[in-house]
Design a binder for these strands. Structure first.
Lengths: 206, 206
DNA sequence: GACTTTGTCAAACGCTCAGATGATAAAGCC
DNA sequence: GGCTTTATCATCTGAGCGTTTGACAAAGTC
């Protein structure tokens, strides 16, 4: 019988995988909350329950951590579109991301404002490909005469995306105008419904 | 003949008003470009061509400057709605703000992401009142049967606002998907037209 | 014309924060 | 069991940055 060469990873005192993951998780929360400039690696380390130096050990400092995080999340947020039925339903689900995946939405919003210029192509291509499929769906609807042919599908998609992110990007406006907490589940579901309704009105109900 | 008590303000060597204004202008550019956490008061002072210390002298440090800036801009961005004819036209003009008033749009976007919770009521009331009038217009359209009564006017307005800001909040997506510079006048006008078209489709054409 | 107030600047201070160094111990290997 | 590699930590360092200090001159006052 072979000797117990290594205990279960969960009971290990030293577990590189766990540590890496803990740092990444904490980084997501911190960067999503405060953006790159506002994030503090001391806060990330504290949240992850590890020594601050490990961030330099595993990743290459703050910048490297941010890039690693971007890579890790780049391909992760496209699952929702796969299972959605109609484009209108896709819009609703995208809006509901603010409820179930608020950090991802915030990261995208920070990324937009911090965006300075065309980075490496590889950086955006995966997302672009995924979105391109949505554009194709819209074009198909136009071919069927269900969606006005005057509309530029690309612009429409971007408008819907931005609209879906509104509770994250404009919480102050939501609260000032409607007097409700933009992050509350009640508002987020209501808003997602409204957006789906709006998409239906445009003819995106398949 | 009275002695020349003071030369024209423009030739003065020391002109508090001019200095204050220069700092505020520079602050708008810097905060719009990098957000609060990313802004550097050294950069603001350099841009304004004044000594860095004057920021503490006139305003109360970085925080105070940001608040002063918010106050100064709070009532300034509502003029566009006044002269617009139809709601669809309002939407187009709002989208074109990204072209003529990019800093204002970016400041609002940063403000949304940096927003932590209900601040002083006075902070958002002026904007809320202005937006409330837009909501009233939408309600009137619903009463006339021109706009679907199922839609929540408040949510619709917020969705349109966020959509109009898309070139500012999602430039990376625009460039990844459409392959064009999200800040170029060509795209911005095209996008504004598209958004007006979309608003028309919804029934916002007066 | 002397005196006060106000606007401006250069330099210094102190704090925050990201990254480096070196010590230490656990894990893997023979 | 001894050696090497790997993971982790406490502490230090150096740079960046916001603010304070103190000097000084222009503008205003009598």
């Amino acid at each position: 019988m072979s000797p117990r060469r290594s205990p279960q990873p969960s009971e290990r005192q030293r577990d590189p995988e766990r540590t890496r993951a803990a740092i990444l998780d904490a980084a997501v929360a911190e960067f999503a909350a405060h953006g790159f400039a506002g994030a503090r690696i001391a806060a990330i380390a504290a949240r992850a329950g590890v020594n601050q130096q490990l961030i330099s050990y595993y990743f290459d400092g703050k910048e490297g951590l941010y890039q690693a995080l971007s890579e890790a999340w780049r391909d992760r947020d496209g699952d929702l579109a796969a299972t959605a039925t109609t484009p209108a339903e896709q819009v609703r689900r995208y809006a509901l991301e603010a409820l179930h995946n608020a950090d991802a939405v915030r990261l995208m919003a920070w990324g937009g404002l911090e965006y300075s210029g065309p980075a490496s192509d590889a950086d955006h291509r995966p997302r672009a490909e995924r979105l391109q499929r949505s554009v194709d769906e819209l074009k198909a609807l136009q071919a069927d005469g269900k969606l006005s042919a005057d509309l530029d599908p690309g612009c429409l998609l971007i408008a819907l995306m931005a609209a879906a992110m509104a509770p994250v990007t404009l919480p102050h406006v939501v609260e000032g105008l409607l007097g409700v907490d933009a992050r509350s589940p009640e508002f987020l579901t209501h808003y997602a419904d409204q957006l789906a309704l709006l998409a239906n009105t445009l003819g995106l109900a398949d």
